[in-house]
């Protein structure tokens, strides 16, 4: 059969063109623009080399956003991972009534817009009329300024992120746990294996590949979701205390019109997330289990 060249071209070209224009070009321009000084009102762009990056090193707000991003990455990944694994394992391995119902409920946060989640949690954290403080007062604890206290705000955002993410990862792990052959567990039953040794000796090794992939998702999506929530919930406040990577970049570039400087932050975010993913991939590398 003759290769239908024209057909192939017209199939690929439109999608490829738009992908190049709206994804590849902007990504490259993040790196290029980071080397320029480019303010909002002047249209002049002056090449400044790595000056933007040097300035970042002494920018306390940038360092603050870096710190917050790392805190969120660690906290959210740790809590979500444990909760999602426990729920997935329990719903798959234990004989539980209304399994389907639990699964459906846990996944709900995932279909909600980040703005909706931000609005819900702003309401929960409301100092006077919110659920959080009224719950605390039931237990005799004095009210907390969830979003107004510089030391607490980042943890309040972490809670919202864990609430949002757990169901998604649970469903991911459930589908790879469902692929494990039942006979393995039956054999371990004969040998009298305990629950935890079944989990650590059978389940965990067999979902390891999937788990490693989700660690990369954790990095990329935590950086993204933290921005979407912070932007809608606190705007980075109070006084920059909840600023994260992308929200600081967005503020510098879009709001403050320091495009070059903003893009330098973008470069740091790219490099940071790719390096971290590579490191995580490297240290979680195991020989794949053959069945």
């Amino acid at each position: 059969m003759k290769k239908p060249r024209a057909f192939i071209f017209f199939c690929i070209a439109p999608a490829l063109l738009l992908f190049l224009v709206f994804m590849v070009y902007p990504t490259i321009s993040v790196f290029v623009m980071s080397l320029f000084k480019w303010g909002g009102y002047s249209t002049s762009r002056a090449f400044v080399g790595i000056d933007n990056f040097k300035a970042l090193l002494s920018d306390t707000r940038f360092i603050g956003s870096f710190k917050n991003t790392v805190i969120l990455l660690v906290l959210v990944t740790a809590f979500t991972l444990v909760a999602a694994l426990w729920c997935a394992n329990t719903l798959t391995r234990e004989n539980i009534k209304a399994k389907g119902l639990f699964r459906v409920i846990f996944y709900i946060p995932n279909i909600l817009s980040a703005v909706v989640i931000a609005a819900i949690f702003s309401a929960i954290y409301d100092p006077s009329s919110g659920l959080a403080n009224s719950f605390l007062s039931l237990m005799g604890i004095s009210p907390v300024m969830w979003l107004g206290n510089r030391d607490i705000v980042i943890f309040s955002i972490a809670i919202a992120m864990i609430w949002q993410a757990t169901g998604y990862y649970m469903v991911m792990y459930m589908s790879s746990m469902a692929a494990i052959p039942e006979s393995l567990y039956e054999a371990s039953d004969i040998e009298g294996a305990s629950r935890s040794s079944k989990f650590f000796k059978i389940t965990l090794p067999l979902i390891w590949t999937n788990l490693r992939t989700t660690l990369t998702f954790f990095i990329i999506s935590s950086i993204n979701i933290s921005f979407l929530l912070v932007r809608a919930m606190t705007g980075g406040g109070p006084d920059g205390a909840s600023e994260v990577f992308l929200s600081y970049m967005y503020d510098q570039a879009y709001t403050n019109s320091s495009y070059g400087y903003g893009m330098a932050i973008g470069v740091v975010i790219f490099v940071f997330s790719f390096t971290l993913s590579a490191i995580v991939n490297l240290i979680t590398k195991r020989e794949p289990v053959e069945l």
Binding site: M23, P26, V30, T216, Y254, G266
Partner: peptide, 11 residues
């Protein structure tokens, strides 16, 4: 692996 949030400003 490119999140839209990363490139919204350049777009």
């Amino acid at each position: 692996f490119i999140n839209v949030s990363y490139i919204v400003v350049p777009i």
